[in-house]
Each structure stands twice: as C-alpha cells, then as structure tokens.
Amino acid sequence: MVRTTSFVQKLGDSVKKVSESKSSSWWYNHHMRAASRAIFERIPLVDLVLEVRDARIPLSSEYEQLRNFPSSSRNIIVLNKMDLANRSKTKEWMAYFKDQNYIPYAINSHNKDNIKEFLNFLQAKVRDIKRSKHFNNSETTTVMIIGIPNVGKSAFANSLHQIGRISAAEKGKLKHATVTPQPGETKNITSLKIASHPNIYILDTPGILPPEILDAERSSKLALTGAIADFLVDQSDLAQYFLSILNLSDEYKNWEKFSIIDNIENQIMNDHTQDFVVQAVRGALFQDISAFKGNLEEEKDMVQLIEAQFTTLIKAFNVSLDSFTDVNGVIASKLINLYRTGRLGHYTLDTIPRTCKC
C-alpha cells in the first residue's frame, strides 16, 4: 500500500470542513445552487450532453448530477487535458468507459487539429440524431457542456466556437465564453454557435461541485488538479501531496540529465516557468529521489524525503531566505503550478476499478 495516507487525509479534512461549514462564499454558493437547478431543468431538453472531465482524474471529476439521468447515446464523456495525463492510462480509461457503455472522447482543448476532429465527430453524431428523429437540417441542435469547475469547459466551448465558425465561413464579431484559471468563475449559461447546415449551438454552463465531498482521496485529487479553489486548502499540504505522488512514480527517471545550475542566482529569476529553472527543479528532484535510501512505502520515510526536497528546492527556485518570505509557501505555489502545466510529468491519478475487463 503506497504511503500517501497522511497527505490525503489532511487535505480531505480541510475540504470536508469547508464544505460542511458552508462558511465559504465559494463553496456551493447561491450562484452554484441556481446554476445547478437551471442545468438540471435543461438537460432533458437538449439534444446532446457533453460531460467534460479532467483526463488526470476521469472518475474523481465526474459530474454527479448527471447520475439522475439514464446514460444513453445522448451523453458523451469528454476527457479534456489529455496532454497533462499519462497517455497510456488515458487509452485504458477510454477502453473502460466503452466497456461501461459510455461514449468517451479524449481531447486537448488548445489543440486546433484535435478540436477539428472532435467537431467532425460531433456533427456526425448530430446527423445520426436528426435521422433517428426525422428532423430536417433547418432545425437547430442544442448541445450542453457540463462539468465540475476547472476541467476546461469554457476553453473547450470557445475552441469549438472558433473552429466551427471558421469552417462555416461565418464572419462577424465572435462571442466568447469567459475563460479564467480560477475555478467556479462562470456564473451564467452561455450559448455559442459552432456549426451551420445544420445549425448547432452549445450551452457553456458553470462548473458545479456537489454540496459535500466526503471522500478524502477524491478531495485531494480535485484540489491538486485545481477543481477546488486554492485558497480553501493549504498550498504546502498540496505540494507535499504532489511530491508523494511523484516520489512513487517513474517520472523522475527521465530527468537524470538535468542538474541544478551553480550560478542560477545570477539568472533572471522572476519567472519560475523558464526552461532553465524547470530543468534545475527536475534535476534537484531527481538527485533527491535517487539518493534516498529509505523505504517510500513507509510514511515516515516519505515525509523525510519530502522535507529534504523542500530544502533542495530553495536553491532550484532561488527563493529568498529573508524573514519576510514564507519559503515553503513560495516553493509550494511554484511547484503546484509546474505540475498543473505538465512541466513535471504527466500523471493519471485515478485508477481503473478492478471490475474492468479492458
């Protein structure tokens, strides 16, 4: 049994406390409640539902409200952020969902070719629906995009809108869905046109979490991938959780050629995403993990390694040690950002249920 238990429990307790207290203006606020009701009422009225999930957490990012509606050919699971997940694991998850009679599709919402392929797939699906219902091409098809916060719904909607309008050669000022790195920022349901002949409109909806999340492991995964607002959890705890995942993976083995740059303090360090900084971080983590002699299946040994990594990362990130700096907080923030942008490897955090035959 891998020893991430204490990190998971700490994060899970934090999230549970916030959700149960209802003290946060972010957690399931009146905007989320109103949007949840509006989505619930509209799902039966649309022609297709695209449930967007995070490819790194295909189960944990499930939109639970959709369970109230029977799965059918009208529902498509879209695994977004496939570029941040483990590629082979994404293929396994696709096979799993097909085995469960779902229609899955993996995408990177920022890849134009990928979006074009999906749009062609979606249009073919719409044509099938129209044939089965004897619609004519003049009638409008409505597709609703739903999902939890920060799975990339709005970016996905905008990409479909832009590619679709260009393909249809339609001119005029484009109407965009609001895209923000902060989860839970979309407040209203926005309609965007993505195709003509037949006309297809998508409804971009706010990200909704359930009123309570009692499972600590799911809470931790949602927090790490950014579905839960960062200010609700301690960033140092979040970084420790990520390091526990990294330390038990094989990702660091790809970083043997990197090392900490000796004169890194002479470089311009205002951007931790610069390649030389990222390489220094990779090299530091590789050295620490490779040199560690403890048993990472033991929690105390894992904690010992993570403490050493935080110390090493001070140099890699060139963090100031003056008395006004929250050193661990700075390191944690930078480390989480590099993880979320794929600069520190590609991880699929959910495991496929053992009942799968794929």
Rank of each mutant, 00 (worst) to 15 (best):
K112R: 13
I39E: 02
E20C: 12
D113E: 14
K17G: 11
E62F: 04
C356G: 04
A308I: 09
F69Q: 07
D234H: 11
F310I: 01
Q304P: 01
T341W: 01
L344Q: 07
V52R: 01
C358P: 03
V281S: 01
L232S: 11
T90F: 04
E139Y: 04
L246T: 03
R354I: 13
Y241P: 05
T325M: 04
D113P: 00
L79T: 08
S23R: 05
D99P: 00
A284N: 08
A223Q: 02
D83Y: 14
I166L: 05
A85H: 05
I245V: 13
L45W: 04
L321H: 01
V2R: 10
L243K: 02
N101D: 07
N75T: 12
T186V: 06
N150Y: 02
N29V: 10
Q162V: 01
Q267G: 04
K98I: 11
W26T: 02
D13I: 08
W93M: 09
L335I: 09
R42V: 12
I148K: 15
S167I: 03
A34Q: 13
I336D: 01
L122W: 01
P183A: 03
E51D: 05
F317N: 00
I107Q: 07
S24R: 04
P70C: 05
D250I: 02
F276G: 01
L119K: 12
N120E: 09
V49D: 06
Q182P: 02
Q123T: 13
L48A: 13
N108R: 06
I148T: 09
A239W: 08
P149Y: 15
K221D: 06
S6N: 13
N120H: 06
S36K: 10
N150K: 03
L344C: 00
I314F: 03
S36R: 10
N29K: 09
M32D: 12
A157Q: 03
R67C: 03
R165K: 13
G12R: 09
G283W: 07
R131Q: 07
G152C: 07
